[in-house]
Design a protein around this nucleic acid. Structure first.
Lengths: 108, 108
DNA sequence: CCGCTATTTGACCGAACCGCCAATCACGAC
DNA sequence: GTCGTGATTGGCGGTTCGGTCAAATAGCGG
C-alpha cells in the first residue's frame, strides 16, 4: 500500500470513526428528524453538557453536521443525510453476525 | 436515553467501529473483489502478519467478513457487501467537509 | 456594568486501541 | 516423527479516546 493510498484510507477512516460511538450515532439519528440545540440533545442523551458538546464538535469537524448560533443557543443539524444509510447496513451486519454465531454453534 | 436504547446504539457502534480504521477499510475494499488469504493481504498492506490477522479477526467478530481454512492457508471474504456503500457516503461527507471549510474561509 | 444561561475549551485520568515481537498452534511435506 | 510455512494469540510500550470537572467565552436582560 503506497503512501497516497494510505492517506486516502486514513481520510475515510476519520469520517467513519466520527460515527463509531453510541452517543454520536444517537445524536445523528435525532438530528435526522430536525435541528436541535445542544441543551435539548444533552437532556435526551442524559450526559454532561460538555461531553455532548465535544461529540457534536467532533461530528462537525468530520463534516457530518453543521451548527448555527441563534441568540444564546447553538442549533445543530444533519449536513449529510446519507450517513443514515449506515443504519440499514448495520442491521444487515447484525443479522449476519447472528447467523454466523448460529453456524458456529451447530458446527461446534 | 433509556437502557434499551443505549444498548441498541452500542451494538450499532461496535459494528461501525470495526470499519473505523484505515487498514480495515483497505481490507474490506480488497475483499470486495474476491476472497484472499491472510498472506496475500499482509503483503498488500505491508504490515506485520500478526497485525493483519488481528484486524481480520476483528472484522470477523463484527460479522463483516468470514474465513475459511483451506490447507495451511485461511481465506477471508466479504460477508456483507453493503458495507461498500459506506465508501460512497464517505465521499459525500468529504465533499461536504471541503465545502464547510471554504465557507469558513469566506466568512472569516 | 452585573448576573444568568448556553456553550465551548483545557486539564486530567482511566480505559481502550495499535503495532510489533515472541510464542504457539495447525497443516502439509518429507 | 521433524521441519517449514501460514496463521493466531499473548504481552508490552506508546498513543488515542471518553468522561468529568473547572474555567473561559458569548449573548441577553436588567
Amino acid at each position: 500500500m503506497d503512501r497516497k493510498t494510505r492517506t486516502r484510507y486514513e481520510a475515510r477512516a476519520r469520517i467513519i470513526k466520527a460515527m463509531a460511538h453510541p452517543t454520536r450515532l444517537f445524536l445523528v439519528d435525532q438530528l435526522s428528524q430536525r435541528e436541535r440545540c445542544v441543551c435539548e440533545l444533552t437532556e435526551m442523551v442524559g450526559a454532561d453538557i460538555s461531553t455532548v458538546s465535544k461529540h457534536l464538535s467532533l461530528l462537525k469537524a468530520a463534516g457530518i453536521v453543521t451548527d448555527e448560533k441563534r441568540g444564546t443557543q447553538v442549533f445543530y443539524s444533519l449536513r449529510v443525510p446519507c450517513v443514515l444509510r449506515f443504519f440499514d447496513c448495520v442491521g444487515a451486519v447484525m443479522t449476519s453476525l447472528a447467523e454466523e454465531e448460529r453456524e458456529a454453534l451447530l458446527a461446534g
